[in-house]
Design a protein around this nucleic acid. Structure first.
Length: 504
DNA sequence: TACTATT
């Protein structure tokens, strides 16, 4: 096994051997519960670990890989005692890192030297991290406990894209001891114009904020330097979801002024989440709807005064993380294919070959097997991919996410009086399909039409949606009128009857 | 202008 390790470290992984290592792993391992541990393949063996075993922290893990996906990677170096992907305690959101303990101390050392900073998992911009967990170093002695990093870590925005880590260090070093300084970069290595700076203490960080925030404008930056404490976990989660929603051209529930009439907005959101979930269960599910429902439930949860109540499972559900109920997901139509976003081939059991995971960066996602048991993550993974393909795929959104089967013969365009809505301030990119998508949660949409300019074929940013009953129409107005999308707010009202407003 | 995450 040491040979394989070496090849791996070289970036020349022998794929075949990776997936067929002889180390006590039974391929169909039952590790279905959270946190694979204790070598499920060998029930006869009581799991033991060295008294001086090292708990490793694993970082830079793509969020669509769970314990089962990671296991083959790490088993190369020895028998795993415990492997746990860190998840947000309320939302179940994969945090992109894990803890790993080998039975033997030696295995941990091997894994660390072979993997740490040596490989970049697909979809990541930075190499994998394999190092002793924080909990290891401060050990039994109560000395030297470092303050939590969120209290001393700064986000720095509005940097010049040419500025390097060193430039930033020079700027910040006067205010304290900098433990870490990282420019955020895209896959191409270009700076994103922002950075993280971690000091040893909160006080140092605060001093830097006081002195530097807004103090100067970097050449080429659109406004003055931003220096603030980095987002908390929750803020990050929200931001991430917001981003995804934005990228999908979906409405943006985050824009609702929660402060002003939070209860109302939240009720709407939950209502919509429930509606979406029920739509999904009705068999009309597509990834957008699944994601949207999961997202809304999450956000609703996150907005409970920051104290997310027990994860909401509006319907049946059970073991899945907060999100949609499990049975809905497998009904996703199979090939959804645009740019590799194929339709989640079940592959419920069986381990993904390690090669799929370790093919150094350029491996397309579909090789991974999202677990059918975790719809939210499936949707999430899908969205990530979709975002990667953006904007190329944007114009094809309706193909990428096929519409539910037509509910009513296509000929019927308009519903009865009171069932037809006029929608204005649609995003330029919205077509009929997206419009329908947006209103499906509120009832049976019998038609959706975005008006296009005949000359340019561009959307005129307004359209009509018809339901088969007035209640759905009213619900939709209540929920969607005033919804912010990008810079605009949707206007949603009943379509005027044909003969109204005719002065002659 | 937003991730390097620590049960």
């Amino acid at each position: 096994m040491y040979i394989k390790m070496a090849t791996l470290a070289n970036g020349q992984a022998d794929n075949a051997s990776l997936s067929t290592n002889g180390l006590g792993s039974s391929p169909g391992s039952a590790g279905h519960m959270n946190g694979l541990s204790h070598s499920p393949g060998n029930p006869s063996t009581i799991p033991m670990k060295d008294h001086d075993a090292i708990k490793l922290f694993i970082g830079q893990i793509p969020r669509n890989l769970d314990e089962k996906d990671l296991k083959p990677l790490f088993e190369e170096f020895g028998k795993i005692y415990e492997l746990t992907v860190l998840k947000d305690r309320f939302t179940g959101m994969h945090k992109g890192c894990a803890f790993l303990t080998y039975c033997e101390r030696e295995s941990a050392l091997k894994a660390q030297s072979a993997l740490h900073e040596q490989k970049t998992l697909p979809g990541m911009n930075r190499p994998i991290q394999v190092k002793p967990a924080d909990s290891e170093s401060r050990g039994g002695s109560s000395c030297l406990r470092q303050p939590p990093s969120q209290d001393r870590k700064l986000f720095v925005g509005m940097l010049n894209k040419q500025q390097s880590e060193d430039d930033v260090r020079r700027l910040f070093e006067a205010f304290g001891n900098i433990e870490e300084c990282t420019i955020l970069r895209g896959p191409d290595g270009n700076s994103k114009g922002c950075a993280f700076v971690k000091y040893s203490s909160h006080a140092e960080a605060q001093a830097a904020i006081n002195a530097l925030h807004g103090s100067q404008t970097m050449p080429g930056a659109s406004s003055s330097l931003v220096v603030k404490f980095a987002d908390t976990d929750k803020e990050r989660t929200m931001r991430r979801m917001q981003q995804m929603a934005g990228q999908m051209g979906m409405f943006n529930p985050m824009a609702i002024p929660f402060g002003a009439y939070g209860a109302y907005a939240q009720a709407l959101m939950q209502q919509q989440a429930a509606l979406m979930a029920s739509v999904a269960q009705g068999g009309y599910l597509n990834p957008m709807a699944a994601f949207a429902a999961a997202q809304m439930q999450q956000m609703a949860a996150l907005n409970m005064n920051g104290l997310a109540a027990a994860p909401m499972t509006p319907t049946s559900g059970g073991s899945t993380p907060p999100g949609i109920t499990a049975p809905a997901v497998p009904s996703i139509p199979s090939p959804i294919g645009v740019n590799g976003f194929t339709g989640l081939p079940p592959q419920a059991n069986g381990q993904p070959a390690a090669e799929a995971v370790f093919a150094n960066g350029i491996h397309p996602y579909p090789a991974q097997s999202p677990t059918a048991a975790d719809p939210l993550q499936q949707a999430y993974a899908g969205v990530q991919q979709y975002a990667a393909a953006y904007p190329a795929a944007y114009g094809q959104i309706s193909q990428a996410f096929p519409q539910p089967p037509p509910m009513i013969p296509q000929q019927q365009r308009e519903g009865p009086e009171g069932c037809n809505l006029f929608i204005y301030h649609l995003p330029q990119e919205f077509g009929d399909a997206e419009l329908m998508q947006m209103f499906l949660p509120f009832g049976n949409v019998i038609s959706s039409k975005v008006f296009v300019d005949r000359a340019t074929n561009q959307s005129k940013c307004f359209g009509f949606v018809s339901f088969d009953n007035p209640a759905s129409a009213q619900t939709a107005i209540q929920a969607m009128n005033g919804f912010q999308i990008g810079m605009k707010r949707l206007k949603v009202q009943l379509k005027r009857p044909k003969d109204a407003n005719r002065p002659y």
